[in-house]
Design a protein around this nucleic acid. Structure first.
Length: 985
RNA sequence: GCCCUGGUGGCGGAAUUGGUAGACGCGCAGGACUUAAAAUCCUGUUUGCAGUAAUGCGAGUACGGGUUCAAUUCCCGUCUGGGGCACCA
């Protein structure tokens, strides 16, 4: 009876499906445990071996928790809206709903293949109207809410209106416009439109303006992804930043809470650090600089600074080029230069503006502001390194204390005021936050901390500044000018946006109910003036009440709350029943990649807090514990293939020297990725020729040998396999185009390939499909091998070659239970101490390892255990039955078969995880390494409870130790119980 | 550029709290079984020097410093791979 994994796995899967063992109830006496994977975007390429890494880890954890007696919720679904499906639709004309459906079916098949314990009856898809009905509903709750800073929570807008009617906004500063002031009389005098405009400045989901990439030639708005090297990826057309009316989520109101409650999360410190850096809290001051415009009007510039202590070092101000004041303060002399500079900045991405610190650009406005303390004139510049969205969009530049300001001053020859004495050399800014301030009037001689306080107090006293906390976090853009996303439940009546649940709309029953379904379209072409494709569907846009919003929601809308829907996925009356939400509560373990560190994780935290504030759920953090898995990379193989058109004769086999270089991807007009031809040198004739040195080898991992060589016969197979060339072309390629570089030990010609590790991607021809691995070795081997590759959180390349070892291990384990000839060989003999030790040490280590997500060492431990049991010739039920349960989280199919064969009822999925006994896992003596001066010289065995004085005596009496002591008296004797012994001379 | 993270044999990696660096697996080399192959099993495998050998001595965890009886682990600096940087998901 051999290990027939195909049969075993089929049988186990059928059993699980028939008995619905993975269907989870919301009613249970057991403690709950909610384990969630970040759900996948179902791309057309299907799953590759990198995707399941995290899924296997969470599956092991989920199965382990279930064996430990928990009611485990472990669902899966699909993040099914998104740009790639729409892009594909534009290219092929297939409707995104159709391709998405197809892709999901493929993903599902591939996932099932691996044997996950998902409760598929709870599957959610963000593109399903039954799902996005509730995404829209939550959006409306945000739209109808504002953030009350006094109590620190979201509240209904209705309450805000009541306050305005009573006392205006005197006690409720407006987050959208801090200068907005009105009393109750003024409020009541406002028109409907004016009132709604004011409310918009308070809403958690609101409309404002933001810059997008606009491509005139394509007539559309592009994602950052679609803009490469300053031109559109498709077609290579010029693009520029354009201001557009957009929906936003007022996440900035939650900045402080998002920061504070990180403390109660069991996430890695680095992940928390990334979130906290993203929120970017900085404490400082807002300082007001007055100035005259060219037409002699007075105005002022507010700057935000974290270093008010350096106020006397201010040599100039810098505004963001988009700052609203720029036009007003620019004088005639500078107007052309300023306009030119602004045009240049429009072509620049934020990334470029922040990264290129060596290249200093900027332009003088011609205006001078008045320093609030010295009353001196300070020139006002604009520069791309100041971003309009951060702080006030204006800075006070202190060249002696800030590197970027320093570079700017040097570049434009602006005189520098030194406020740091000798510590400022004139060559480099003194940006350290320690030391004494000098040359600064009343601040001179103070420490930085004291000067900061004194400066703020003085500014506050004279009314030129206030203490201010600033966040780097910006409100989240929530509009996309796209088709394949959630439509907004918004209708414009006389150009005023209303929620479809508001009375003015609700009077039309058809319009008032959710979901607002995404209408079918024939064409995915953008609408007029950068609007989305929905703008083209007139009879959808035009309703009896008004016009519909034609933007759609972004990808993170559906993924911000999906973890709640799994709790009660078929509920048509609520997004999830309060009972279900209270039962399952927070996600106990959330598994996904670090690429979501800030985006998705921050947004869903905000949605959770808002739903909590509004009383819909009972917790304000979605993911209690977080595990970030690393990426499994692919190995790409490159070969040199000559281009025969110039210089080289066909069949010129002397022409063997090919240098492999990293190809650079050349993205420009109408091409996506071209590999660049390169000079190569013929070392026989001395001739220079052209070659394509870095041709990516399609599916190279199947064909190269262990020394990364591609033999002639393998190349032949490869060409046939790829089904890309005619027989004639294949012959030509084999005989004439390849630069054979040597002969293998068997005498076959080969080319040396160059291997590189990079992201696994269809376009890089390095994808390994899990289906192939499962077919060849079985799902259990695949699961264990993925875990065996290394620590879960580290990126590593996939190498199919090592999988044999894991497969051999499973076969070896199987042979403990069954002999290939004679069949079942488990007996009921009593276990020996050695066997019990092997088992119990393993049980303990597996439990510990799973809790700390060290799955690779678990696999090693199983190997060690099986090796020991095989050596001991153990076939005893007392050992093997617990072992079968212990391996169930890792190799569930085999565990199920063994469990059945051992004569058990039910499924191994619900067996109790074995408990280890302390007496089998602790040794009573230890072989100590004995070192002299830190260098280990010998090993000596002592009982663990031995007296230190006795140990010291014995060690010092040892011949080898004596030899190393060379007769000297030991200075110190170090004995660490259970660890080591060190003698210091 | 900024933030996060990694770098240990030919390869993937182990060393959980500062305590024997290289567990486990791959690959490779040699051997057993077999008519043969597959499968399986056994032995060796960081490196330099010495030795027939057992073994002994030295070096060694990207690089350069430091703290310590003791550093892969802690601190400072440098190089380098990966992820993110707000409209890919």
């Amino acid at each position: 009876m051999e290990y027939n994994f195909t049969e075993i796995e089929k049988k186990a899967k059928e059993k699980w499906a028939n008995e619905e063992v993975y269907k989870i109830s919301n009613d249970s006496d057991k403690p709950k445990c909610y384990i969630l994977d970040m759900f996948p975007y179902p791309s057309g390429a299907g799953l590759h071996v990198g995707h399941p890494l995290g899924y296997i880890a969470s599956d092991i954890y989920a199965r382990y928790k279930r064996l430990c007696g928990y009611n485990v919720l472990h669902p899966m679904g699909f993040d099914a809206f998104g740009l790639p499906a729409e892009q594909y639709a534009i290219e092929t004309g297939q409707h995104p709903a159709v391709t998405t459906e197809k892709n999901i079916a493929r993903y599902r098949e591939q996932l099932d293949n691996i044997g996950f314990c998902y409760d598929w009856s709870r599957e959610v898809r963000t593109s399903d109207p039954k799902y996005y009905k509730w995404t829209q509903w939550i959006f409306l709750q945000l739209f109808h809410s504002w953030y009350d800073r006094a109590t620190g929570k979201a509240k209904p807008v209705k309450e805000l209106i009541a306050i305005f009617e009573k006392e205006g906004n005197a006690n409720i500063p407006c987050p959208g416009d801090e200068t907005l002031r009105f009393d109750s009389i003024k409020w009541k005098g406002f028109s409907e439109k004016e009132q709604r405009d004011v409310l918009m400045q308070y809403r958690l989901a609101y409309q404002g303006y933001a810059q997008v990439w606009w491509c005139e030639a394509l007539g559309t708005v592009l994602a950052n992804d679609e803009v490469v090297n300053g031109v559109s990826e498709r077609g290579g057309y010029p693009v520029e930043r354009k201001n557009m009316r957009q929906w936003f989520l007022r996440i900035t109101e939650y900045a402080e809470r998002l920061l504070e409650s990180l403390a109660k999360l069991d996430w890695s410190e680095s992940m928390k650090e990334m979130q906290s850096n993203w929120i970017g809290k900085s404490v400082g001051a807002e300082v007001r600089f007055g100035l005259f415009t060219p037409d002699a009007k007075t105005t002022f510039i507010n700057v935000f600074t974290t270093r008010p202590d350096t106020i006397f070092g201010v040599d100039f101000l810098v505004l963001a080029p988009e700052h609203t004041l720029v036009d007003a303060i620019t004088n005639e002399e500078q107007r052309t230069a300023i306009e030119e500079y602004k045009t240049y900045v429009k072509s620049r991405s934020e990334r470029e503006r922040m990264s290129e610190v060596k290249q200093v650009t900027g332009c003088f406005t011609g205006a001078y502001a008045v320093h609030p303390l010295t009353r001196k004139n300070v020139p006002v510049w604009i520069s791309e390194y100041v971003l309009v969205g951060y702080g006030t969009g204006a800075i006070m530049a202190v060249p002696s204390g800030d590197e970027r300001d320093h570079a700017f001053a040097k570049h434009f020859n602006i005189p520098i005021t030194n406020i740091f004495g000798d510590r400022y050399t004139g060559e480099e800014a003194y940006s350290s936050k320690t030391g004494i301030i000098e040359n600064s009037d009343f601040l001179t001689g103070m420490s930085i901390a004291d000067a900061t306080e004194a400066a703020i107090n003085k500014l506050q006293f004279i009314g030129a500044g206030t203490r201010k906390i600033n966040y780097r976090l910006r409100d989240a853009g929530f509009s996309r000018q796209r088709y394949w996303g959630e439509p907004f439940p918004i209708i414009y009546v006389d150009d005023i946006p209303y929620g479809t649940d508001e009375p003015i709309i609700h009077n039309e029953p058809k319009l008032g109910s959710l979901p607002v379904e995404l209408p079918y379209v024939e064409s995915y072409k953008p609408g007029p003036e950068g609007q989305g494709p929905l703008a083209n569907i007139e009879d959808w846009v035009e309703t009896d009440a008004g016009e519909r919003e034609t933007n759609t929601m972004p990808g993170y809308a559906g993924s911000s709350w999906y973890f709640l829907r799994y709790m009660d996925p078929h509920n048509d009356a609520e997004f999830a029943s309060r009972k279900a939400v209270d039962y399952w509560n927070q996600v106990d373990l959330y598994v996904g990649g670090t690429e979501h560190a800030v985006g998705h994780l921050l947004y869903s935290r905000m949605w959770t807090k808002a739903l909590y504030d509004l009383g819909y759920i009972g917790f304000d953090e979605p993911f209690k514990r977080l595990l970030n898995q690393g990426m499994i990379q692919g190995m790409s193989y490159f070969i040199g293939i000559a281009n025969w058109e110039k210089d080289i004769e066909p069949g010129d086999t002397n022409y063997v020297r090919v240098d492999f270089i990293r190809s650079y991807e050349h993205r420009s007009n109408n091409s996506v990725a071209m590999e660049s031809p390169r000079h190569t040198y013929n070392n026989q004739t001395g001739r220079i020729g052209w070659g394509w040195p870095n041709k990516r080898l399609k599916n190279g991992h199947y064909f190269v040998d262990t020394k990364d060589r591609l033999t002639k016969s393998a190349y032949q197979k490869l060409l046939a396999f790829n089904d890309e060339y005619s027989a004639e072309e294949q012959l030509d390629m084999i005989n004439n185009r390849v630069l054979w570089q040597g002969k293998t030990e068997e005498g076959e010609e080969y080319i040396q390939c160059k291997m590189e590790v990079e992201k696994m991607s269809k376009s890089k021809y390095n994808v390994v499909n899990p289906d192939d691995i499962v077919a060849q070795y079985g799902a259990d081997t695949f699961r264990m091998y993925e875990m065996f590759l290394g620590p879960i959180d580290i990126s590593k390349p996939w190498d199919t070659k090592g999988i044999e070892g894991v497969h051999r291990f499973l076969k070896k384990m199987w042979r403990l239970y069954a002999d290939e000839q004679t069949g079942w060989i488990v007996n009921d003999d009593a276990a020996t101490d050695a066997e019990l030790k092997a088992l119990h040490k393993t049980i303990k280590k597996i439990g510990d390892d799973i809790e700390r997500f060290s799955f690779n060492t678990s696999v090693s431990q199983f190997m060690i255990c099986v090796n020991e049991l095989a050596t001991l010739g153990c076939h005893k039920r007392a050992i093997l039955e617990p072992l079968a349960v212990a391996i169930c989280p890792f190799a569930p199919h085999m565990a199920e078969e063994l469990w059945q064969q051992l004569g058990n009822k039910g499924s191994v999925v619900d067996a109790p995880f074995p408990k280890y006994e302390e007496r089998y896992v602790t040794d009573n003596s230890k072989k100590y390494p004995v070192a002299v001066n830190g260098k280990t010289r010998i090993e000596m065995e002592f009982p663990l409870d031995a007296e230190p004085s006795i140990i010291e005596k014995e060690v010092l009496a040892d011949e080898t130790i004596k030899k190393w002591l060379e007769g000297k008296e030991p200075k110190k004797f170090i004995y660490v119980k259970g660890k080591m012994i060190n003698v210091v001379v």
